[in-house]
Structures are given as C-alpha cells and as structure tokens.
Design a protein around this nucleic acid. Sequence first.
RNA 1: GGGUCGCUAGCUCAGCGGUAGAGCACUCGGCUUUUAACCGAUUGGUCCUGAGUUCGAAUCUCAGGCGACCCA
Length: 502
Amino acid sequence: MSDLRETRLEKARALEALGQTPYALSFAPSHRTAQLQQAHADLAKGEERSEPVAVAGRLMTRRVMGKLAFFTLADESGPIQLYIDKASLEAAHPQNPEIFSQITTLTDAGDWIGVHGTLKRTDRGELSVKVRDWQMLSKSLQPLPDKWHGLADVEKRYRQRYLDLIVSPHTRETFRRRALLVSSMRRWLDEREFLEIETPVLQSQAGGADARPFATHHNALDLPLTLRIATELHLKRLVVGGFERVYELGRIFRNEGVSTRHNPEFTSVEIYQAYADYHDMMALTETLIATCCQTVCGSTVIEYQGTSIDLTPPWTRATMHELVQRATGLDFNAFTSRAEAAAAMQAVDLVVPEAADSVGRLLVEAFEQRVESSLIQPTFVLDYPVENSPLARTHRSKPGLVERFELFIVGRETANAFSELIDPVDQRHRLEAQQERRRAGDPEAQTVDEDFIHALEVGMPPTGGLGIGIDRLVMLLTDSPSIRDVIAFPLLRPEVGSDAMR
RNA sequence: GGGUCGCUAGCUCAGCGGUAGAGCACUCGGCUUUUAACCGAUUGGUCCUGAGUUCGAAUCUCAGGCGACCCA
C-alpha cells in the first residue's frame, strides 16, 4: 500500500527533475468536456477538426498501447477521451523526444492534468482531444477506488465522500439536487416576500421541540449553552416584532440516535406567516414542495425506491382520528378514559406503552403503529391531541385537539405545522405542564421560556407556522434510502488505530 | 437496547478442518483505434482481536471490536 504511494511520489520527483511542477498554480481551460461533446456531436468517425482547445480534469482511466494511448479525462461536466499519438506528439516537440513516454509513465489514474490539442473522433466513434501538449496540474498519491465496483464499502463512501463523489455519478447528482432544492426553496420564499432572518444556534435554553440538546460552554462568560433544537421560538419573536413573513433554513442539532432517517445535525426550514392558519400552511406546503420538485426533478411525479409518488397538488387531507379508525376500527372520540382506550387497543393487538398516559397519547401510539408507514402518497394528517403539541393553538371546534398537521410521504414525517398558539396565558399553562413532565423524568419535555412568554404578552398576530425537514425531502427527490446519502459528511464514530485515513 | 448478516492482498471477492487464492490495481516487457483495452511476467497477507477445541483453525466454539440492515 505504501509502495503505491512511494511509486507516485517518485513520479512527482521525476516531473520536478524535468523542470515541471507536480502541483501547478493554474490552468486556463477553453471548454468543459460536455461543451465539446455537444459542439462537435456532428464530427464524423475518423474525422479531425483543427480548432485548438484546452481541457483540464482528473484522469479516470489510461490505456497505453505501444505508440498510441487513450486516456479518459473527466471534469465536473463529464468525461472526454484523450487521443495521444506518439508520432504527432513528438513532431510538435522536436526538442523533447521523450514526451510520449513522459505522459504515459508519469501519469496515473487520479491525477489532475491539463492538455492542449485539437479534436478528433476516433474510428470507434469516441470524440477525443488529440493531445499536442500536456501539463500535470496535481499529482495524486492515492489510488482511485476499484473502477468496476466503485466504492462498495458503504462506510467508506461516507467517511471518504471525496472518493464517492469521484466515482459515483449518482452521488454527485444527489448533492447537485440538494443545492438546487435549497436555492429554489429560498427563491420561492423570497419572491413571496418572506424574509430569511438568522436566529441563534447557541442558546442558554433550547426550546421549540421535544428533543434533547447538545450541551456546550462559553468560556468568557462562563456560561453553559446548548445548540438549538429548533428555530421556532426565535422566529416567533420576530413575528412579534412585526415581520409578517419570516423563515430560516438552517442546521438543527438534536442529541439523539443515528439511523437511516436520523442524523444528529440536520437541516430544516421553518416558515411563519402572519394572519394565516394551518389550512393556509397546507396550501403553502403543497405548492412549495411541488414547485421545488418540478424544478429539481422536472416533474411532480417521481419514483422513490420503486414506488411512484405523485406530488401534484392537491394532496390528501385526513384527520388522525379518521386514519386510526380506518386502520384499526377504533373510534378514539368515544373513549372517556385512558383505561378504556388501552383495553380497546390491546383487543386489536396494539402495544400500550406506559409512558402514553392519556387517551390522546394513545391515539398517537395507534397512529404510529398502524397508520404512519402506510402513508406513501403525500398526506396531511390533521388535528393532534393537545398534550403532544404545546406550541399549537387549540382547535377552533374540537375540544382536546390542536390545529396541527404533519405531512407524511413514503411513511415518513416530512413537515409539521400549526395554527400557532398566540395566547400567552394558555401558552404558559402548556409549557408549565411540559416542565412538570420533565421533572417527572421525560428528558425531551419542553421548559418554560420566560422571555418567549413575555414576547407573546407583548402581542403576536395570528400566525401559521411550518417546518419542513430538508434532508428527508432531498432523500425523496434523489431516490436515496438513507439520510446519510444526502448529507455530504454524516456523523460517524471516529476511526481509531487505522491508517485508512492517512 | 434486540435480531440478522459481514470483516481474507491497495480494491472487489472466492476459499468453510489439511501448503493463502482469483480478477482488477501496482511494477516490468510487448503492442498505433482503445474505451472494464489486450497478451506475458513479477510483486503484494496480523485471513478484525483474544481465548478455546484439534495432530492441525482463515475455516469449528466462546468472548470482544468495528460496520451494514431490520426492529424498538
């Protein structure tokens, strides 16, 4: 293994001995390879064009046969073949009779090189740059992954994402789509006069969600701090301050397990619109996501893991009660006590966790056990129990419920929205109830943020609020089975005692 | 936390109780139409770690480590 590296280092030294650098300062390509492929699509087999071009990129494969060599050079736009003919290369460099053996022996797959030349389509039909001159731009000291199998080791794909990107077009496409999704989402919001305002990541009190935060510390103030678990409470303060449409798209941190659907740092967008309720936010959600899907995928009907998903609005709307009743036969509106609901659940083989200490929490349990994973096409699930939703406004007509929806696609929660609770007295009672649960041992229960309550007392207009999980949306739009496929550098346990990272 | 599977050359893998293997990559030789180039030769090993069973363990057993997937 170190032999490979040593061999390449020797080639770098050989270049230096020839008065060339293995690490160039710059190069000026005239075209990207895809431009050439497009512009010369009409060039016939065996024909040449004398138009001079300069291209740069990474050597992917090399095929040397005596006095002729074919290299594949790839830049960001794609590959092009280099046609390296000993006779014509030497004719262009009468002072350097070794030039052909230099390009064939001092280069390796993985090197960045720049070449000048003209165009030729080979007898086999491959558009090629016929090389007149070449320059090492950056000598690679490490081998590329197996050229047939690529990076089969899933862990290595995440740990050494640069290798994955080099050899996996699908991975490159995934991160292109991710960038396109984020920019198109921002553009859509900006065009509708939503302001993106950044709120603190470092907070003395993490709030806005049921989750455990990461703890850190500020030295100068000797202050314990946590990383944010949501942007909700600060964005709402901005609405109190008079910004009627605000959002923030950014990183959230939750000190939780790692799975194919969870990474401890992930990206969300939270959107708040004054004078709107959760019905307005449903319309916004389906239009926003469908628009972004159209931009990123070119259609609102997409394929995810072999299943066709239709994101064309409008999407199905159903209450949690309806969905649970349809799936289990149980009417949770009829239960008057937890014991009654628990007995009914057990009768249909539903698990009844002790922590679910109310009819409402049991309803959510039944939903999660029997409904959630079956919601493949986009579905708005409406009207959650009040005890699970301390920041949502109580339902205008259904006692015990709040005006909240979650959006499910391919069985995954993808968005969450409320008619926001703006009544400061009710809000204090709700957060105090949460704090009581926290004292009783629930580490994810929320706390009372006095300044937030104070802001509500100053006065917040009626507001609709929405949060969308960007990573899960990217998974959907890139047909990725794991959240780690859509995060460039997902959290992994650090490697110990290995030279693989050398 | 529970279950299943995996860990052997730089990479992808075979070998499953009897001398450590193949393809690719690397190095050398040959080759002016290849594109997984081809032909020939050479090089390359802590078979994840430890203990046990056995005349003999990459292979069987136990414990541990790391990882993947599923479930909670």
